[in-house]
Write a protein that binds this DNA or RNA. Sequence first.
DNA 1: CGGCGTACG
DNA 2: CGTA
DNA 3: GCCG
Length: 350
Amino acid sequence: MAICRIWLYVPASGSQPAIRQKPSLLIVRTTLPASSPEGISYSTAISAIIACPYKLRSGEEARALHKVGEKLALKVDEFLQTGRIKEADDLQHNERYQALKSLMTVHGIGHHTAKELYALGYRSAEDMRKSGKWETEFKYHDDIQLPIPRADVESIAAFVQLQIDRIERGAHICIAGGYRRGKLQSNDVDLLITYPHQDGKERKMLRRLCHRLQAKGLIPPDGILSFSEPATLRTITENKKASSFDSLDKALVVFRHPANGTTRKRDIYRRVDLIFARWPSFGAAVLGWSGSTQFERDLRKHAEKLGYKFDSGGLRVRGTNEVVPTMTEQDVFRALKLKYIPPEFRNADP
DNA sequence: CGGCGTACG
DNA sequence: CGTA
DNA sequence: GCCG
């Protein structure tokens, strides 16, 4: 039963060090594009190994874990015997691997394009910068690589809250993502926004918020990396039942976090995701945006077994597509017959 | 041997 | 394709 | 790569 593994997920803070296996095993995963079936398979197996609550003493023991097969068991054996995994070590020194990794730090460059660029002779993000062909991409690139301390995440959320209040009061903001799982530093800021008990009030709010943030200079003119409002467009154009389908309005932006003179001597550009959710599925939205990726996979799979379809847009009954009201995360866990798992225990990704 | 999340821009 |  |  896959969901059992969820109980073994470890806190990001590492407050249960005994639970962790040696991390060098993780490197194996990076052999493949993480999105490929094999990449996912590796991630899943490695997560299972990391989350295993007792010390593994053999590959055979690892093999007993759900999702760990013969290949990974061999790697565990190799690690236990030699203290390292050759494939992983080699990869670390592999020029192509390092190049691809660097190229993929640029927003909009995935493994596919990275490979093409490599074939063209690019060996790093710096090579791209020097070529002068990606001026836009590099405008915020360096800032965006910087980890975001929790205090800054909170500060950014407060800026956004203030601006939302100036448009329509009563919104509730939840900081999701790694922050919510207790990570001390984040790569980006995921903000989930709803109007409690006021379904529909969130409509068109994303547009208005983005416009306002741009007007205030909190989002630079070219700072909206992607913008989609399927929920708003759907409800306006068709007057269909809310049951049909229901994605979230979201904008991926670059946020200009103003200096405060002490911890931030200068304005820093941060990646912020703004997501508006309807109140009746806010719980699913928060759950869906809190991660980890691995946890979400297990959750979806579990939902499927019970005849539901779960994603950040909501919890629905398979077949009828009927929406199960989930205002809170607890509502989702209840429907899925699971005991509540706090966000800090949803960390499966290393 | 097929499926592995999936919708959007 | 890249992103979440 | 791993599972059903």
